[in-house]
Design a protein around this nucleic acid. Structure first.
Lengths: 287, 287
DNA sequence: CGCTGTGATACTCGGGAGGTATCACCGGGA
DNA sequence: TCCCGGTGATACCTCCCGAGTATCACAGCG
């Protein structure tokens, strides 16, 4: 009576996201009537109204908001359980798949650190296989939560380490990435104010948790797009120093005097206790 | 095909914990054969062996260990969803229950800070109701994870904040709590070494994650037991300075020069975003 | 006033979860 | 050696509940 089937959670989350029974049912691959009944039954069992059925549509009650949030977390945890169990399947048995750890890394970042880490890990005696999984900008957190990855490299203060265990690896300053031809590109150092005050070079905007902040700069989705736009003299960006590795000839990197330092962390789900993961973390923190 | 019902997780966790189908079935309130079948089906669907059925009993494979760990986390998340949704039920509607936040606090600790926090919060305009939930020694983490609590006060380095968001509130030194009649009780300051070297006063041992470390000291479960034993001159203990509030006349508190400082944090599940909780955290960090 | 689109209801059907009875296997003791 | 206690697996049956189809009730809107 105080438990809740995964199916019910999936159904509710679908309805809460679509705010429309028909579309939700279609997304779930079932018909609309069973979905209506399932939600009603869910509300009865919880003893709580989750949806406000007003004319022309559906909206969430306060309790519904909570269940959406908590239900997503629970569903993530469940699919994580499946993914990680499958991945661990047969590990350790000769002939079966080797121990494997999936490391989520922001695509295009961490080149140097990542190389050092992988080399150091490969040099360990009983080294497990590490699969490097490139991720979108703020996607690593979701990947850790739903089990697509076991461990990740993240940058504070950009990524939030909320909900995870982590060890800080290195801290570095930030640089402004400018078109090499731009007047500011020859400066020894710049301030954030100077960067933001250049009207012909608006700062590029990254998707942050699925939403763009309003602003003048162009919207970019990956480092290649951004590199292109900078080379064309259309925008500028601020990055950790280690981003120098991927700069083109057309780019210039100028240190920023007042940008907050960026720290790279190795991050994993708090409840992980696997030997392989522990080894990797140990290796990383010795770098 | 890549999802997993709560029921299946419950079943597997029961078997993995009992390592015995019969007992697990009894605990689950079902018969043994359906349980056997459910686990077989689970293994087939995951494509992974979870249990090693050797003669005379059952043991976990590597994948089984992972699923036990991850499954527990997923089940906790599910029951947390139910608890928090029920708690939020009807909130905001006049006549219904008020907004309520459950604050888990180590029983007997945090007296001063807790009073200040509750007073400050009650003084806020739209103050929600705060229910203070006393918890066992290291139980607050579990309470946050499975939804019995929404927010907690914890001490580092004793509690691990792993998996949660937190804000540090105050840092304080530690004191040794001694029988007032003991020779060391008159000292202005002590070192950890001096404390541990007194054979007639072995340090008390607390249950830490359900297991006692081996050692000579008596086992204690709550502060009252401990207070009694100290007053009787049978043991000693190390506590944050703020513990002075609950000392008896028969107790003496002597500052420790080399004990690590203790920081009190307010801690909540990383995905929480409720307005009420945000208000409480805001109030706490202004203290 | 019908038409459209919404969610709820009525009824039926089939799969699967669960129960009972039983088997197959192994180890230990007299 | 043989039987017995205890383990998990299998066979078979029952029945509930989840899902589908058809339909309703209702609200907006031209």
């Amino acid at each position: 009576m105080d438990t809740l089937e995964t199916r019910e959670l999936r159904y509710f989350v679908a309805v809460a996201e679509e705010l429309h029974f028909g579309r939700a049912a279609e997304r779930l691959g079932i018909a609309q009537p069973p979905l209506s009944r399932a939600i009603q039954q869910l509300e009865r069992r919880l003893g709580v109204a989750l949806l406000e059925r007003n004319r022309r549509g559906v909206s969430l009650t306060g309790a519904g908001e909570i269940l959406l949030q908590e239900g997503r977390a629970a569903l993530d945890a469940t699919t994580a359980a499946v993914r990680r169990t499958r991945r661990a399947g047969g590990a350790g048995r000769p002939g079966g798949p080797r121990d494997r750890v999936v490391l989520a890394v922001k695509a295009g970042a961490f080149h140097e650190l990542l190389n050092k880490l992988l080399d150091a890990h490969a040099a360990e005696p009983g080294a497990a296989e590490i699969e490097v999984l490139p991720s979108g900008m703020c996607e690593q957190e979701a990947m850790l939560r739903d089990g697509r990855a076991d461990v990740a490299l993240m940058h504070t203060p950009f990524n939030s380490l909320a909900g995870f265990d982590s060890v800080a690896l290195v801290t570095e300053g930030q640089v402004a990435i400018l078109p090499a031809s731009h007047p500011l590109a020859t400066r020894k150092s710049l301030s954030l104010a100077e960067i933001s005050d250049v009207p012909e070079l608006p700062l590029a905007r990254w998707p942050r948790h699925d939403t763009y902040p309003p602003g003048p700069g162009p919207e970019v989705h990956d480092q290649t797009q951004l590199a292109q736009l900078i080379a064309l003299g259309r925008t500028t960006a601020v990055f950790p120093e280690s981003a120098r590795t991927w700069l083109w000839d057309e780019h210039a990197a100028v240190p920023l005097s007042d940008a907050p330092p960026v720290t790279t962390h190795i991050v994993w789900p708090a409840h992980s206790r696997s030997r392989v993961l522990a080894g990797l973390i140990e290796t990383a923190s010795r770098l």
